[in-house]
Each structure stands twice: as structure tokens, then as C-alpha cells.
Nucleic acid binder design. Structure first.
Lengths: 140, 140
DNA sequence: TCTTGAAGCTATAGCCGCTACAGGTATTCA
DNA sequence: TGAATACCTGTAGCGGCTATAGCTTCAAGA
């Protein structure tokens, strides 16, 4: 049996986080010691590893809830898993693209600033007037 | 004089957001009509445009607070502005890189899943065991 | 066996940057 | 004048944790 601290050390997350996962129903309630402390099994440990791994890949808690429930039934067709992963990858791709647009614009602003006084600073000037932007980054 | 709705339409943000900016001290308190409604000047409008533009480039509220305060003094040296912008660009770059690492790993997982049953699904398998990851994405 | 310090417990509030109510008042246009 | 729309304040919620306060329990050493 593992204490909450064992699991925390093992997965690199904090005890508070594990309690939080329990509270939102992502981790099942474990057994308790005589003194009311949580006592986990290997199954709990595996589940927490799964959760942390999926989180580290950027899946949302709701995604993970679904992945866990899908993975429960070994004989189910895995197309739903596949679809969820693809959806997430596409969202990551979109996010990368929008960040690259931002970076292009930031680079341009920084490159055009030749030092000197704030009154002539290109960065401030561009921030004051979106029409000076070239990359068409969205204002919203 | 502009109403809060005028400013909202003009900048593409919601009236609630403008009131929020006032509440946190990012926008100054405007004058009020006889009936206690906010009445803005062109200066307010410019400031809000600046804020929204900087937000759309990913600057945090605190960054923007500093940019605004730096931009107040036209004769100040703009190196602080430059440094802030570079710092932000570097953070964006780091974020892009970490998202690209994620995407590589997601792509690999998705590519290896050949359909079939959940029991053989590579996506689930990888999520269960981080050692199956190649890209070395951070677990934390 | 006793002590002490670390680890655990619950409950609650805070982080960011908004957004969404609820329940009331002001303004505007026909 | 009346109806529709906009605006007001105050509060709570989103996601995914993190931090605190004030307590109890556990485990290792003397």
C-alpha cells in the first residue's frame, strides 16, 4: 500500500493535486488507514501515471476522463480513442500556428526598434496602432 | 463622449471586460452621465486599443501595466520596453517549442494506432507507459 | 516507551483573464 | 409614452491546480 506522499513522489505531482483529482472524481477514493490517511494500491498508481502522462501531453481533464472510460473496455473498438487524440493534436497544431503568427509580429516589432527614446520606440508605436501590424494576427 | 457599448464595439471586447479593466486599475475611471453611466473620451479609447492589441499579442495584464507606464514618459530610454518585449517573445518561443514536442509525440502515437480493439490500441498503451515515448516531453 | 518532526487530514480561498448571471436603472427611438 | 435596448452593481464561475490554516497521525530515533 502507498501513502499519498509515495504516489506524489512517484508521479512528480503534489499530494494536493492527487486529492484534487479525487475530489473531481478522476481518481477513485482509496482505502484509509486506521487514522484516516489514504492508502493506495498499484491500480491507483497506474491510473495516476496515466492521468499525469495524458496531462503532460496537454489533454484536458475531461478528455482524460473519457480516455480512461474508453480504456476500461479492452474489446471496444479504439476509433473513439483515435478520434479524441486526433482532435487534440489538431488543437495543438492550431495553437502552434497562432503562436507562430504572434512571434513573427513580435520579432518584427523588436527588430524595428532601434533603441532611443520611448517617443520613437517602434514597439510602443505598433501597440498603439494595429494597422502597423503585417502578420494579420487576430485582435480578439 | 463614448458609452461603454461604443468602446466595446470599437475594440471588439465586451463591456464586462472594460469594467473589469477598470476594476483592476488598468483603465482609469471615466466620467459618468447624470444617470451614472460611464462616458469615455478619445484617450480612453486609445488606451483600450493599446491594451487589446497587447493582449492579442499575448502580453499579460502585468506586462501591459508596465508597457503603459513606460510609454507615459516619451523621453525615457526605451530599453525597458525592448527587454519586456524580448522576454515575452522568448516565452512564446519556448511555448511553441514545447507544443511542437507534444505534437510530435501525439503524431507518433496516432500513427502507430492501427485501429482495432482498445486492448491493442497504441494510444492507450503509450499513455499507460511513458517509457514508450520517444520525444522526451516533460512529465511535469 | 516516549518524543519529536514530518507527513497527512479537511476546508477554504486564491491564481489568470475574463464571462455570465441576477435584479435593478437609464437611455433612446418610434 | 411606452417598449426595447443598454447600462448599472455585485457576485459567482471557468480550468487546473496551489496555498494556507489549524488540526491529527505516523514513523524513526533515544
Amino acid at each position: 500500500m502507498f501513502s499519498i506522499g509515495d504516489l506524489a513522489r512517484d508521479t512528480g505531482c503534489k499530494a494536493e493535486t492527487i486529492r484534487y483529482y479525487e475530489q473531481i472524481g478522476l481518481m477513485p477514493e482509496p482505502a484509509r488507514s486506521a487514522g484516516n490517511q489514504r492508502r493506495y494500491t498499484q491500480r491507483h498508481r497506474d491510473r495516476l501515471h496515466f492521468i499525469r502522462h495524458a496531462r503532460s501531453l496537454g489533454f484536458t481533464i475531461d478528455d482524460i476522463r473519457e480516455l480512461l472510460s474508453l480504456s476500461d473496455d479492452e474489446h471496444r473498438d479504439c476509433s473513439a480513442v483515435d478520434a479524441l487524440a486526433r482532435r487534440h493534436r489538431d488543437a495543438v497544431t492550431a495553437r502552434i500556428e497562432s503562436l507562430m503568427t504572434l512571434r513573427r509580429e513580435l520579432d518584427r516589432m523588436i527588430g524595428e526598434c532601434g533603441g532611443g527614446e520611448v517617443g520613437q520606440c517602434r514597439i510602443i508605436e505598433v501597440l498603439r496602432d494595429h494597422r502597423l501590424c503585417e502578420s494579420g494576427h487576430p485582435l480578439a
